[in-house]
């Protein structure tokens, strides 16, 4: 190994470790910012959250564990805590407070419906739901979703990016 190769190796490992550490710290911070465990939801009732969680997981399902992905597939909406994202945004004074009643009235009617049926029966609500689920899965974890940077890991992105470590022509994602 030449000196240059050695340095490069070290830099990559360092960047990866730094990214991982920051990712864990970020996830921890998000956990910390959440509500107390016995009242997990800020806006939704527990049964509403349950229905929402089931629908969200249908929209973005977890990868089935397989030999191919080393039994480490990318989580779906449930494990990425997409419902937590939506719940936080529906809370009083949060950006989607105005949608809370829409969620409330529709979720009550979605108890026994699959995502396909919801899409057919309540197309407008479904579009809103799908938009929010995608935001919760692909958006920044600080808002409650994308737990553990699930979607960033799926796309092979640096997340959170470590300032000063993005080198043109070099890949340095997690």
């Amino acid at each position: 190994m030449t000196r240059k190769q050695f340095l490069k190796c070290g830099l990559t490992a360092g960047a990866a470790a730094g990214g991982l550490a920051a990712g864990w710290f970020g996830a921890g911070l998000v956990e910390y910012m959440g509500s107390a465990p016995d009242t997990p939801w800020k806006a939704l009732a527990p049964q509403e959250a349950e229905i929402l969680d089931r629908l969200a997981e249908e929209l973005i399902p977890a990868d089935p564990p397989s030999l191919e992905n080393g039994y480490k597939g990318i989580p779906g909406a449930h494990d990425a805590k997409v419902v937590r994202y939506i719940d936080w945004q529906l809370a009083p004074d949060a950006p989607y407070e105005k949608h809370l009643l829409t969620y409330r009235s529709h979720l009550a009617m979605c108890k026994k419906l699959s995502a396909v049926e919801v899409e057919k029966k309540f197309p407008e609500f479904f579009d809103l739901l799908l938009k929010h689920v995608k935001q919760g899965f692909f958006g920044h974890p600080r808002h409650g979703g994308n737990a553990g940077w699930a979607s960033y890991r799926m796309l092979g992105l640096a997340g959170p990016s470590v300032t000063g470590r993005n080198i043109p022509g070099e890949e340095n994602h997690l």
């Binding site: 929209l59 995502a115 799908l130 995608k134 935001q135 692909f138 960033y152």
Partner: peptide, 18 residues
């Protein structure tokens, strides 16, 4: 950014699911 790509529409591509 990923959230923008995720919201983009592509003909013939399912909007949700696996």
């Amino acid at each position: 950014v990923p959230s923008v790509f995720a919201a983009s529409q592509w003909p013939g591509v399912p909007k949700w699911g696996k």
